[in-house]
Amino acid sequence: MTEKPRIAVLALGGTIAMVKGDGGGVKPGLTAADLVAAVPGLERIATVTAETAKVVGSSDLRIDDVLAVAARIDELAAAGAIDGAVVTQGTDTMEESAFLLDLVLDGRVPVVVTGAMRNPLSVSHDGPGNLLAAVMTAADPVVRRRSAELGVLVVLLDTIHAAIDVAKASPHRIDAFHSMVAGPVGVLVEDRVRLVGTPNRDHKRAFDAATGHPRPTAWTDGTLAGPDDVALLTMGLGESGGMLAALADDPAHFGYAGVVLGGMGGGHTPAWVVEDVERLARRMPVVLAARIQSGYLLKATYERLGSEIDLANRGVVSGGRLPPLKARLLLALLLRAGAADGAAARSVWDTLN
Results as ranks from 00 to 15, higher is better:
Val155Ser: 06
Arg173Ser: 08
Val109Ser: 06
His125Pro: 00
Met117Lys: 04
Leu121Val: 12
Val185Met: 10
His172Lys: 12
His203Thr: 12
Ala169Tyr: 01
Ala182Tyr: 02
Ala133Thr: 06
Ser147Leu: 08
Arg205Ser: 13
Met136Asp: 01
Leu100Gly: 04
Arg192Ile: 07
Phe177Leu: 15
Arg144Ala: 11
Arg144Ser: 12
Leu131Ser: 07
Gly183Pro: 13
Leu195Phe: 10
Val112His: 07
Pro171Leu: 05
Met180Ala: 04
Pro120Gly: 02
Asp158Glu: 15
Val113Tyr: 02
Arg215Lys: 14
Pro110Ile: 07
Val135Leu: 05
Asn130Gln: 12
Leu132Met: 10
Ala163Arg: 00
Val142Lys: 13
Asp175His: 13
Met180Leu: 15
Ile174Met: 06
Leu188Ile: 15
His161Ile: 00
Leu188Ser: 01
Ile160Met: 02
Ala210Pro: 01
Lys168Pro: 11
Met136Asn: 03
Val109Arg: 09
Leu121Thr: 14
Ser124Lys: 11
Glu190Ala: 15
Arg108Tyr: 02
Ile164Gln: 02
Pro214Ser: 04
Thr211Pro: 01
Arg146Trp: 12
Val143Ala: 13
Ala163Leu: 08
Leu153Lys: 05
Val193Asp: 14
Asp158Lys: 11
Asp202Ile: 01
Gly183Asp: 13
Ala169Leu: 11
His213Glu: 10
Val181Pro: 00
His161Cys: 05
Met180Trp: 03
Arg144His: 05
Met136Arg: 15
Asp158Val: 00
Gly127His: 09
Pro214Cys: 06
Leu101His: 08
Arg146Leu: 15
Arg144Glu: 08
His203Asn: 05
Ala169Val: 12
Ala134Ile: 03
Pro171Ile: 05
His172Ser: 15
Leu103Glu: 10
Gly212Thr: 11
Val189Lys: 13
Phe207Gly: 10
Val135Tyr: 08
Val109Trp: 11
Lys204Gly: 03
Val189Ser: 14
Phe99Met: 00
Asn200Phe: 11
Asp191Val: 03
Ala163Cys: 08
Arg146Val: 03
Ser147Ala: 15
Leu100Phe: 09
Gly129Pro: 04
Leu105Val: 02
Ser122Arg: 01
Gly186Met: 11
Phe207Thr: 07
Arg194Cys: 07
Pro199Tyr: 05
Ala139Leu: 10
Leu131Asp: 11
Val111Leu: 13
Asp140Arg: 06
Ser124Gln: 02
Arg118Ala: 10
Phe99Pro: 08
His213Asp: 15
Arg108Thr: 15
Ala116Val: 05
Arg194Thr: 07
Pro214Asn: 00
Gly151Ser: 07
Pro199Asp: 10
Gly183Met: 11
Glu149Trp: 03
Ser124Thr: 03
Ser170Leu: 05
Val181His: 09
His203Val: 15
Asp106Glu: 08
Thr114Ser: 12
Glu149His: 08
Ala148Tyr: 03
His178Cys: 03
Val112Cys: 07
Ala148Asp: 07
Ala163Phe: 00
Arg146Met: 14
Ala116Trp: 12
Val152Met: 09
Thr211Met: 08
Arg145Met: 09
Pro171Cys: 05
Asp140His: 12
Lys168Gln: 09
Arg201Thr: 06
Ile160Ser: 04
Asp165Thr: 14
Ile160Val: 10
Gly151Tyr: 09
